[in-house]
Simulated assay, not measured.
Amino acid sequence: MLTLRTVRRQSLALLTVALLGTVSVLAQQTNAPASLSPQLSAMSGTGLMLAGCQERMKTLDSLLKEAGYSAMRTQVVDGTTKVARWYHPEHHTTIVAFAGWQASDNTFTAGEFAGLMRWNELIATP
Rank of each mutant, 00 (worst) to 15 (best):
S41T: 15
R5P: 04
A114T: 13
S70M: 12
E66I: 09
T94P: 01
A34M: 12
T81Q: 15
V23R: 09
A51S: 13
L20W: 07
T80C: 03
I95A: 01
V17I: 14
G79H: 05
L40R: 01
Q75H: 06
T22Y: 11
Q28C: 11
T109A: 15
Q28E: 12
E55R: 15
G111E: 10
L2M: 12
L48D: 01
P38S: 01
G100D: 04
N106T: 00
A34V: 15
R5H: 09
S11R: 15
A124F: 09
N120D: 15
T22F: 13
E66W: 01
Q54I: 03
R8H: 11
A114S: 14
P89Y: 00
R73N: 09
R85N: 02
L15C: 13
A18H: 00
C53H: 03
V76C: 06
G115F: 06
G79W: 08
T46M: 08
Q102W: 04
D61A: 15
S35D: 07
L36I: 06
G68D: 01
S11W: 14
L26G: 11
S70I: 12
Q75F: 00
R118P: 02
A103I: 09
L40D: 04
L14C: 11
G115R: 03
G21H: 02
W101M: 08
T30S: 13
Q10H: 12
A13P: 04
L122Q: 04
N106F: 04
S70H: 13
L64T: 04
G45W: 04
T46V: 08
L20I: 04
P89K: 07
T94Y: 07
M1C: 10
P38W: 05
G100S: 02
L4D: 14
Q102P: 01
H91Y: 10
L15K: 05
V25C: 05
W119A: 02
V7D: 06
P33N: 05
R5I: 07
A67K: 13
S104G: 09
D61P: 02
R8D: 11
L19F: 14
A99F: 03
T74E: 15
E90T: 15
T81R: 15
A103V: 10
L2K: 11
L48R: 01
Y69S: 00
A124N: 13
P33E: 02
A97V: 02
T59G: 08
T16W: 11
Q54V: 08
P33Y: 10
V23G: 10
R9L: 13
F98D: 06
D61C: 00
L40G: 06
N31R: 15
M49N: 11
A84H: 02
Q10V: 14
M117N: 08
G52W: 00
G52T: 00
G21M: 02
L4V: 12
W86K: 06
H88A: 08
V77M: 08
P89S: 04
L20R: 01
